[in-house]
Design a protein around this nucleic acid. Structure first.
Lengths: 136, 136
DNA sequence: GATGTATAGTTACCTAGGTAACTAATTCTA
DNA sequence: TAGAATTAGTTACCTAGGTAACTATACATC
């Protein structure tokens, strides 16, 4: 049975998330938590809406994941001047975990990408980017 | 902020599933239900384990989705000689829905892929396939 | 033939995504 | 400036993925 372009992508994605979760288990994180921690590291303080826009994930999903990070004391929510929003920030513990997780994720991604020519990687990213734009 | 190869793939995948679900809503299906119906159409009768192996999705997930298809009377479970297994089959209603959904999915996928050169598509599939094998 | 192992499927429970509808605060506008 | 519209975030509830542990049947082996 021939698999369509998209079926293949769905399948790759399931496997990738599974293995990435396995790796991140070493530091007690899930991949969605990692995405948020990674974003927070780059931007110091941010809001739920900013995370939602950047990751293109709906707000309720982000709310839930951030709450779990807060329970683990990896982030704190700081009241803002605009009383609607609360600025989210990595704690010391969160920053330390970032460093640990970064090693793991980098090694994992490198191990997957080695042996795949740069041109092929670039072309694939181009195609994904184009498809993403067409979806919107 | 530069997005990694994999972050981009995760994002594309979220958007793709979202839009595919929107399309399939027209016939009251979710994309995971569609994957199973599509597989059943090709193989006439099959088992839960076969579906699980082919889609590379764990058994409990398949169990749940197949049960929902059964509730909608799109599939039936037929007792087998081997009393452990139950062979799963599309009903008439399921087959009719397959035809409807196929039109929708084909049109959706075509609209996304038009304008993307065949070579680029092929290269992308190659890369995904290679990455998938490396994951195992 | 009894016992141990493998297989099909289910149940319970976890995270990750979504939508709809809501509150509270802010901003826009007539 | 009062009222309308927008925005930040939350709550409730849906499907989709996962793991662990279980039952029942089948098969293998001693």
């Amino acid at each position: 049975m021939v698999q369509s372009f998209f079926q293949r992508n769905l399948q790759f994605n399931r496997s990738f998330k599974k293995k990435l979760n396995e790796q991140l288990m070493k530091v007690g994180l899930y991949h969605s938590q990692w995405s948020i921690i990674y974003y927070l590291k780059q931007f110091d303080t941010t809001t739920l809406v900013e995370i939602s826009n950047y990751l293109d994930v709906e707000k309720p999903t982000i709310t839930r994941t951030v709450n779990r990070l807060e329970e683990q004391q990896l982030v704190v929510k700081i009241p803002s001047e605009d009383k609607r929003e609360r600025r989210i920030q990595l704690t010391g513990k969160g920053l330390a975990l970032y460093e640990e997780a970064k090693q793991i994720v980098d090694a994992f991604e490198r191990s997957l990408l080695t042996g795949i020519p740069d041109d092929d990687q670039k072309k694939t990213v181009e195609v994904m980017q184009l498809l993403l734009e067409k979806l919107k």
